[in-house]
């Protein structure tokens, strides 16, 4: 399955891009509307980019009232990404989405680098969300956790059905001349090609630690990148920064991945999942 990374596509502005995905993941929604951070919000660096959008979103009521019905018309399965500033926020958001048939899964954004973090641990946030809905819950984690496999095990124990790995990692860029932060919010979330080895390590470790389904993301730009994530343990992959420069990436990466799998005699993505851990596919002698 190919998804978009949350916050990297507006399906209502670019429905043709969303329809090329297997799942569309919304930009993170919070209980209240948020205007987001003041500009400047993005800065390109040598091997990626920084963003500090700051969870701009219409709030859960705005999403449910105005956006969800239109998103459902796209005909693409829909995951809603939710975020908050305390465990009660996650509980409230999951409760509000629990009865919406348009929503096939909920991704808990537990790791936005651009807003203040909730005081609770990732596992406590999952535990607060879990009783509110029977929908599939994916926990999106930061690769910056001190002990990521431990965090992954803890969110699994708290009831997460899967993991989204990884979110952006905090970074800084300075203006060439003034040596001041280029972003209005100073620090931002780092994404793009440079994130790939970091994300790959996270997927590899968390696959071993939990065995949970994993959506792998972080610097995926080609079918070969996607294959690496599957081999490390991802069962699906998501496209983020690559969508900015190449809105045709979903179809291209899908074709390239199919070629990569075929050239190795692999029957499909599921046959590639976890290969880096030593398992050999039946079809390869």
């Amino acid at each position: 399955m190919i998804l978009n990374a949350s916050g990297c596509l507006d399906a209502l502005e670019a429905p043709e891009v969303a329809r090329a995905l297997d799942v569309f993941v919304t930009k993170t929604v919070t209980p209240q509307p948020r205007e987001g951070n003041r500009p400047v919000r993005i800065a390109e660096t040598e091997a990626g980019m920084l963003n500090s959008i700051g969870l701009e979103n219409p709030g859960i009521d705005g999403l449910l009232r105005e956006k969800l019905p239109r998103l459902a018309e796209l005909g693409v399965p829909l995951w809603v990404s939710v975020g908050g500033f305390a465990a009660a926020d996650y509980a409230q958001l999951c409760a509000a989405l629990a009865d919406r048939p348009e929503v096939s899964a909920i991704e808990l954004n537990l790791s936005c680098p651009n807003v203040e973090e909730a005081p609770e641990s990732a596992a406590e946030l999952v535990a607060a969300a879990r009783p509110q809905t029977r929908k599939t819950l994916y926990a999106k984690l930061s690769p910056a956790a001190t002990d990521l496999p431990e965090t992954a095990r803890a969110v699994q124990a708290a009831g997460a059905d899967g993991l989204s790995l990884v979110n952006t990692i905090r970074g800084l860029a300075l203006d060439d001349e003034t040596l001041q932060p280029r972003l209005g919010h100073e620090l931002g979330g780092y994404s793009g090609p440079a994130l790939k080895p970091i994300a790959l390590a996270a997927v590899y470790q968390c696959y071993r630690a939990t065995g949970l389904p994993i959506v792998g993301m972080g610097g995926i730009a080609t079918g070969r990148d996607a294959l690496d994530f599957l081999a490390a343990g991802a069962s699906s992959i998501a496209l983020g920064t690559v969508l900015f420069g190449d809105p045709d990436a979903p179809g291209r990466v899908r074709r390239e991945l199919a070629e990569e799998l075929a050239s190795r005699g692999l029957s499909g993505p599921e046959a590639a999942t976890g290969l880096a851990h030593g398992a050999k596919p039946a079809s390869v002698a």
């Binding site: 596509l9 502005e13 963003n51």
Partner: peptide, 27 residues
């Protein structure tokens, strides 16, 4: 004008503040 990553509404990066209101410039 604003720094832009995508140009088609995906990145929310090109917001400019005009009279206190943020506008996504590309759309």
């Amino acid at each position: 004008e604003a720094p832009m990553a995508c140009g088609y509404g995906a990145c929310y990066g090109c917001s400019v503040e005009i009279d206190g209101v943020l506008k996504r410039l590309c759309v």
